[in-house]
Amino acid sequence: MAGRGFRPVYHPAGHDHALRHALQDLRTGRWAAMARLLDETSDWSAWTRRTQVLATVAAGTDVVRIWRAEQPESPAAAVMHSRVAVERAVRAHRSGHARAGQLCQEARAACHEAGDRSPADPVPWVGLLALAALDGPRHPAEHRAAPPAPMLPPGPWGLLAESEKRHPHNREAHHRMLQFVYARRSGPLSEAVNYSHWAASTAPVGSALHALPLYVRVERYRRERGHERALDLHWVAEDAVREVRRALDTWFFFCAVDEASLLDLNHLAHALFGALRFADAARVFEALGPYYTTLPWAYRTARPDDRALAEEVFLRARARCLGD
């Protein structure tokens, strides 16, 4: 895929061609391919990832409601209902919609219903973690539980523990927890740094949680609103290089790259490029194939909302590493 004329592709399904087909079916208002895909999904990692991606499309439609009406006893339909409800609540919160509070309550109820229907499923608990990050300073007692280790903040640790019981080291659960830590207070990211290092240190070899500290490093840069040169200096610092090497050596070299998150792969390629480890970055770019995500590349531009600029930065970095 190297060479001039290469254009990257953004697609939420990435290498998951079965998910791509289900998304196409979903966009036409049909739910059968989605139901079939979820029925064939046999591990919690794929289940969590696929339900999340499906919900981002389904949230703008009535397809899941129609599915539930036609198959009211389907546990998968109940889980997708909770996914859609959470996605809508998150979007309403971000936009400051007047019904954001009501949608959050409805989503919480949908998660509890899905959890009752599918007791072994981690996704309803992941949804509750996502909703916890929307509570702001009024966190209920459930969201102010004592942490499991020193240097960690109070938070919805009970919700995380329920997810961990069902699927240890669930990638999305820990990213949702990280979002809670971000939202807990503004200012320095020391709590987020501590959390990401704790999550990575407890994860087994091959876990995507080893890439979590890279997200916090990008978030720190985003908040400081630095420029490209400052970002390059940021990634060659000794602690940054150590985090990049750990993600490469304990996650990337052991994971099934076709099943890996495109965001994780892009964060790793971005970090390796910034750390001047071009040969290692080339391996990640090759694993990405034709796919890319706008983040974190957009933060290397003057206008992070401009997708075209993010694509240009991605292409320059890719060409430098692959020798195009």
Rank of each mutant, 00 (worst) to 15 (best):
P72A: 12
P153L: 08
P137M: 10
R223T: 06
G158E: 13
A208C: 00
H21F: 09
R99S: 14
A92M: 07
C104R: 13
F252V: 08
R320F: 02
P213F: 07
A85M: 11
W44P: 03
H175K: 10
E286A: 15
P122T: 13
V205P: 01
A77W: 01
Q71P: 01
G187F: 10
R223A: 06
A35E: 14
T28R: 15
G323T: 07
L265F: 06
L309V: 00
P140W: 08
G115H: 04
Y291Q: 02
L295Y: 04
R68A: 14
D324K: 14
A211W: 00
A2C: 04
A100C: 11
A58Y: 06
H17I: 08
A120G: 11
H175G: 00
A192N: 05
L268T: 04
S201A: 15
H112I: 04
P296F: 02
G5F: 10
E106Y: 05
G115V: 06
R225N: 07
L263R: 02
R246E: 07
A55C: 09
E191D: 15
H97P: 00
A89V: 07
P304G: 13
L129P: 04
H197Y: 04
R229K: 11
L178D: 02
A110P: 03
G96D: 08
A173I: 01
G14R: 04
P213H: 11
G206W: 00
G60E: 12
E142R: 15
F254V: 04
V313L: 08
A69E: 12
M34R: 02
A319G: 11
R68I: 05
V241W: 02
V218L: 05
E40P: 00
H93C: 07
P154S: 12
C111V: 08
E191H: 11
D25E: 08
T294G: 12
W157R: 09
V53Y: 10
A161W: 12
V9P: 01
H93Y: 14
D306R: 15
T41P: 02
S261Q: 01
F253G: 14
R49K: 11
P140N: 09
P304V: 10
R88N: 11
D280W: 10
V84K: 05
E224H: 11
R300H: 01
P150A: 13
G187W: 05
L295G: 01
D16P: 11
A32M: 10
E164Q: 13
W47L: 15
A302P: 00
R318A: 11
V9H: 08
L37G: 08
H270A: 07
L265P: 04
P8V: 09
P137K: 12
A120T: 14
V205W: 00
G3F: 07
W47F: 14
A237G: 02
Y182N: 06
L189F: 05
H11C: 07
M151N: 13
L315K: 11
L265M: 15
L26G: 01
E162K: 07
V284G: 03
R91G: 10
V244K: 10
G323P: 07
R320W: 05
L26E: 06
